[in-house]
Design a protein around this nucleic acid. Structure first.
Lengths: 227, 227
DNA sequence: GCGTAGCCTTACTCACGAGTAGGTATAAAT
DNA sequence: ATTTATACCTACTCGTGAGTAAGGCTACGC
């Protein structure tokens, strides 16, 4: 339980007998690491501040002193992890490419992130989305960015379809479904981790780009350079 | 808290002064109704047995006497609501039709159910899927049944004579994504309830049957009889 | 009538966990 | 050397909510 978090309890290779007394910024990082871990294991309510403090290798009052209440702590955890995901995906979202490739690369980036940050993903997925109050706001921001991208793609390309209003609503709905499908597939992947991130991304593309109709005809999606 | 200790919440319009003393089966139904409602409002942890008892119009020990612990009660709620959904969808799943129409009708049935049973859906999706332990098992069982149906549909249709192994894995993954997309779209719908169940089903078909590629070309899905 | 079984209640116990009071020890500043 | 600030702790309070003890009221069989 305790190992593998935050690079151990003592900072640096210093052999002194008093490894304690670390500066605030370091402790805050450790606390957040612990919080993400514990929240991901037990969910918001079943996670206790005592356990978070213990995992962080510090006493409870320090947690309160640095990060505030349990809500504040959870909020901070979400914000930090959400930023990670967003940045991981945003890096690949360079403009001037085909929507198809943007989507594919976005999926690859996402699944790569999930495979390397399971705890982060667990915290974000459905913990943040579910609880009422301030957590939802953090989550919604990330979701809105996805919706934005999807809507942009639609307006950019297929604006023949009708009023901009209708397109926007349609885009929102599709983005929601898209995100849900991706999340769900990520969950499934955690139980069947044989496939590579690229393979998972290709599966997503088969479903949401080609569509089920094509799939039933045996027409799965493959990257352009292999066609 | 409530002024009306004996009046008010009892079912039946009888004006008699002693409407209490109902048989066990009736009380159990009332308790489950109350439980679904309260759980859907507050989530598992924030729902208190006291409130469930109060909403059911009964005292707390009765709840424990009839339905057992809080976990048992939640479990029973999930099981009952899950059965409802499955049956609603299963009714429309008559064999001998095209996969396309089976899928569409399944979506219509599902979205119709959700629109008429918001609390059920909240309990099932937003809660059961998230809480760990025995609750997740109930949920997973239901989800697996849907996934199984979808993947057999795919294998049956798409692989006349080849690659059963690969198709099976592929099918499971895609079914998981498909279910996730549907769930997620249902959640979105609860915040944007303007559209009809048919419209929502059509949106799902646009995404997962036609695919995003077609959508960007303005090619949305429409029911066959309108083509 | 009288027992027994089932419906139903008030009024507790008890554990758990968020948040805090109040104090110690070490490093930096003067 | 003394003050000040910061890191850090043990040991509490206190509300909340799951679960229970112990008994009352109503009906129905005999």
């Amino acid at each position: 339980m305790e190992a593998a978090l935050s690079g151990g309890d003592t900072a640096g290779g210093d052999p002194g007998r008093r490894p304690k007394r670390l500066p605030r910024t370091v402790r805050e990082r450790q606390i957040l690491d612990a919080a993400v871990f514990v929240f991901s294991q037990h969910g918001y309510h079943d996670a206790s501040m005592d356990e978070i403090a213990e995992v962080a290798g510090i006493s409870k009052p320090m947690v309160y002193s640095y990060l505030g209440s349990k809500e504040d702590l959870f909020s901070a955890s979400i914000r930090r992890e959400a930023t990670k995901v967003i940045e991981a995906i945003a890096e690949t979202m360079t403009p001037g490419r085909t929507p198809e490739m943007m989507l594919y690369d976005g999926f690859v980036a996402f699944f790569t992130f999930v495979s390397q940050n399971r705890d982060s993903w667990r915290v974000l997925h459905r913990l943040a989305a579910n609880q009422g109050g301030p957590f939802f706001a953090e989550w919604a921001e990330m979701r809105d960015r996805v919706i934005e991208v999807v809507s942009t793609l639609m307006v950019h390309q297929g604006s023949e379809g009708g009023l901009p209003e209708e397109i926007a609503v349609q885009g929102e709905a599709l983005a929601a479904a898209l995100v849900g499908a991706t999340e769900s597939l990520a969950d499934w992947w955690m139980d069947h981790p044989e496939a590579s991130p690229r393979k998972m991304a290709a599966r997503m593309m088969s479903l949401v780009w080609n569509g089920f109709g094509d799939i039933l005809r045996g027409d799965y999606w493959v990257p352009p350079h292999k066609r």
